[in-house]
Each structure stands twice: as structure tokens, then as C-alpha cells.
Amino acid sequence: MTYLELMGFGPTGWGPAMLRAAGMTVVVAVLGFLAGAVFGSLAAWAKLSRVRPLRWLADGYTTLLRGVPDLLVIYLFYFGGSAALSAVARMLGGQGFVGVPALLTGALALGAISGAYQAEVYRGAFLALARGELEAARAVGMPPALMFRRIVAPQVLRYAIPGLGNVWQLVLKESALISVTGLVELLRQSQIGSGSTREPFPFYLTAAALYLAITTVSTYGFGWLETRSMRGVRRA
């Protein structure tokens, strides 16, 4: 079978399956990135707070998650999550093993990992805000929530875009590890395909090309975002 027959869209082609799997890769990466934005902004807030135990907690989180292999974190969420769910099910009178949906595990694990990286990005972006602007907001009597919405959030996001672009690329590539939980994303689909056709090379090569396409498009996307967010900023 030629490469085109194998990866094409004909009756024996794996093209549609691979494209669908690439879609799943994007979905799990986006969910993981968004979960990471939640974890990351909470951790950044804790790191900047005046309460010492909160700072320690956040520092512990980022140090741990950035120093431990991501595969271990994924195993923790996968096995730990199902162990916890099974325990809850037992308490409710159920029995046996309860699995966590793979997409949920994947998104949460990617969120926990990328949150540690995003925390540093948000913290750095917040520190880049001009102090005078916060002072001015307080001086005109803005309550904290309004100040956050009008002054802090828009600027932090602007400063954070380059850093977030790097984290997004990271999440996209880490998402391949979610294949160990059985979620049919791009890499898992390639494993399935190469298992049933005994032609691993074309499948992994196609997977690599699709990943490359996604990362390349994202690079341009973030470049566009960065230029757009800097419209109102005068540059030397």
C-alpha cells in the first residue's frame, strides 16, 4: 500500500481518523491550557499575596510541578483519580473500579502542569504593571474588582502573551503524553493505526507532521495576537 492510500481519505485510508485525532489533541490541549490559566492565576495571586503560608504553598506548587516529570503527574491524576472515585463509589454503596473519563484526566493533568508555568508568566506580567496606574485607580475610588477588570487584567494579559505562547506550545507537545491514559488523540490514534496495519513509520511521520502544522499555526497566531495587543503602545 502506498503512503497516499494509507493516509488518504479513501475506503482504506486513515486520513479522517488521523484528522479527528488531531482535533482531539487540540481540544485536550485547549482544555488543559484553560485549566492551567485558572490554576496559574490563583498561584500567581498567592505568590504575590502578603500572607506568608499562601506564598509558601504557591512556591511549593510551582517548584514541584516544574521539577517532576509530567508523565508522573499524568499517572498521579489517572490512577489517583480513579482510586479516589472508586473510594467515593464504595462509600455510596457501589463496588468495583470506577474510571475517570480520559479527557477529564488529561485536561486536569495538563492544567496542573501548565498552571505552574503560567503562574510565573502572570506574576512577571503583574510586576511589569506601572505602579502609578494602580495608585491612580485607587485614587479615583475603584473597588478592587473593578480595578482588576479595567486596569490589571487587560495589561497583565498583554504583557503575558509571549510567555503564554511558550506555555501553549509546551501544553500542545505534552498532550502527546495523555495517550498513556487511552484517550484517542493524535499519538494514540497513530499507535492504533500502526498496530493494525503493521506500518508504524507512516503513522508516526504523519503524526509528527500534524503536530508541526499545529505548532506552526499557533506560532503565527500568537505573533498576530502580540502585534494586535500592542496597537496602543508607543515603541522606541
Partner: peptide, 16 residues
């Protein structure tokens, strides 16, 4: 631009 795991599989299983 590609995940390390894909590179590992390409070399280990793919070249096989």
C-alpha cells in the same frame, strides 16, 4: 515543533 514522545516512537517503532 513535535512532541518528544512522537520522536521516540518514530525512532524506536517507526525505524523498526
Amino acid at each position: 515543533g513535535t512532541p518528544l514522545l512522537v520522536q521516540v516512537f518514530l525512532i524506536y517503532y517507526g525505524l523498526g
